[in-house]
C-alpha cells in the first residue's frame, strides 16, 4: 500500500497516474469499492478524506473499515488531502473529522511501504 498526501489541488492524482497509470474504472473517488464490485489489479482510493468524513457522518468506523480494506487490497494507493493544518474548528463534528482523519493517516503511514507528500505536483518521498 502506498499513501499520498498533500494540500488541496496539488496535483496528487495526476502525480500518481504519471508514475503508475491506472484505468479510470479503478479510481474510486471519495468511496470504497463495494463488495463484489472490485476489478482485478491496482486500485486507487482518491479523496480518501472525503470517504472518512462520509463514514463518520454515517456513524461508521472508518478506522476499522480501512484496515480491513487494505488487508484485501495490499497493493492499493490511497490519496488524501492534509486537512489538519488550520485553526481548530468550533464545530464538534468538523473537529472530530480532522482529529480522526489525522490518526487514521498516521496508522496508514505506518503500514505503507511508501509515503509521498505532493506539493505543486511534485512528490517528496517521506517514507
Amino acid at each position: 500500500m502506498k499513501l499520498i498526501i498533500g494540500g488541496y489541488a496539488q496535483g496528487k492524482l495526476q502525480y500518481v497516474l504519471r508514475k503508475d497509470p491506472v484505468e479510470a474504472e479503478k479510481i474510486w473517488d471519495g468511496q470504497l469499492p463495494e463488495n463484489g464490485n472490485v476489478a482485478e489489479g491496482k486500485i486507487i482510493l482518491h479523496h480518501f478524506h472525503n470517504w472518512v468524513k462520509k463514514r463518520l457522518a454515517e456513524g461508521g468506523c472508518p478506522e476499522k473499515e480501512i484496515l480491513e480494506f487494505i488487508q484485501i487490497h495490499p497493493d492499493c494507493i490511497i490519496i488524501s488531502d492534509e486537512i489538519g493544518n488550520g485553526i481548530v474548528p468550533v464545530d464538534v463534528f468538523e473537529r472530530e473529522y480532522r482529529e480522526r482523519t489525522g490518526r487514521i493517516l498516521i496508522e496508514l503511514a505506518e503500514k505503507a511501504e511508501e509515503v509521498e507528500r505532493v506539493i505543486c505536483g511534485i512528490g517528496q518521498r517521506i517514507k
Binding site: 489538519g84 493544518n85 488550520g86 481548530v88 482523519t101 489525522g102 493517516l105 498516521i106
Partner: peptide, 8 residues
C-alpha cells in the same frame, strides 16, 4: 510543528 492529528 504539525497540524491536528499529525502525531507531533
Amino acid at each position: 510543528i504539525g497540524g491536528s492529528g499529525s502525531g507531533k
